[in-house]
């Protein structure tokens, strides 16, 4: 049940501050889309506007249209809670629930969605999600321990397991590997490849190789100048972006000659 996302003329504000301006793009279903760009250009902001997490910040709002499979994400009768149940998110910093066990952390979303879970189903979800996130072998003997007791990278994989446990239609990942070692990173990249056949995935990354490896399409965001809103410079197939981009700015950024 993957879904495509159509964004047109999206402006994103924090109060009066326009953080991202005039973004239009089409994110295809069953594909991986990467957002790249310098720090502060609004990648996280853009990502959070795709599951209505942006508006939980006081004063934050958006203008423009986001259509998910033809349905307006910001329509007057759309419940943001329902949106977030079907569009999952992994954050830049790992955030497992500190007082919950590893087991309960994985099930946190499922328990919101359908309160009655048989023990067998629950065990099944936990094992499958943790295996997917390449964490099962490390934690299978201490599922009852608090999630806070894991290393940073393990916590991030726990958060990934938690997000995929509810089988969302779209998965948004904000630099999911920035706290991970190369082995876990490659496991997550494998996972992304695997999930791609069922889900729509959007990933923010600072790692060009990672964008090139995992994504089908790439969006490059940039700031015109300090204090100016971020905007989408180029959105193209990843292959084209990394070999023959349309914009000189894209080429400069990708090849490390930033300016």
């Amino acid at each position: 049940m993957a879904k495509s996302i159509d964004v047109s003329d999206l402006n994103i504000y924090y109060g009066d501050f326009l953080a991202v301006e005039g973004v239009s793009m089409t994110i295809k279903a069953r594909s991986v889309t990467a957002f790249i760009g310098p720090s502060g250009c609004g990648k996280s902001t853009m990502l959070r506007s795709l599951n209505r997490m942006h508006e939980v910040i006081p004063g934050a709002r958006v203008e423009g249209k986001v259509m998910v499979d033809g349905q307006s994400l910001y329509g007057p009768d759309v419940d943001p809670v329902a949106v977030r149940r079907s569009i999952g998110m992994v954050f830049q910093r790992p955030n497992p629930f500190p007082t919950m066990s590893i087991y309960d952390n994985v099930l946190a979303g499922s328990r919101l969605n359908s309160r009655k879970l048989s023990k067998a189903d629950a065990d099944d979800i936990v094992e499958r999600s943790l295996t997917h996130a390449n964490l099962w072998n490390e934690v299978k003997d201490r599922l009852g321990k608090p999630g806070q007791g894991l290393s940073g990278g393990q916590q991030q994989r726990l958060c990934i397991a938690r997000a995929i446990a509810v089988e969302p239609e779209v998965l948004l990942m904000d630099e999911p590997c920035s706290a991970l070692d190369p082995i876990s990173t490659s496991a997550i990249e494998d996972l992304i490849h695997e999930l791609k056949s069922d889900y729509t995935i959007v990933i923010v990354t600072h790692n060009m190789q990672q964008a090139a490896r995992v994504s089908d399409e790439t969006g490059f965001f940039n700031l015109k100048a300090a204090g100016q809103p971020g905007h989408l410079v180029e959105f193209n197939a990843t292959k084209k972006m990394f070999t023959n981009p349309d914009e000189p700015a894209t080429e400069a950024y990708i090849s490390g000659r930033f300016g």
């Binding site: 939980v56 809670v81 977030r84 149940r85 954050f91 629930f97 979303g109 997000a163 509810v166």
Partner: peptide, 12 residues
Amino acid sequence: LHEEAALALGAT
């Protein structure tokens, strides 16, 4: 961080 973790899972 933890509030957003819950909200992003679709918590009311």
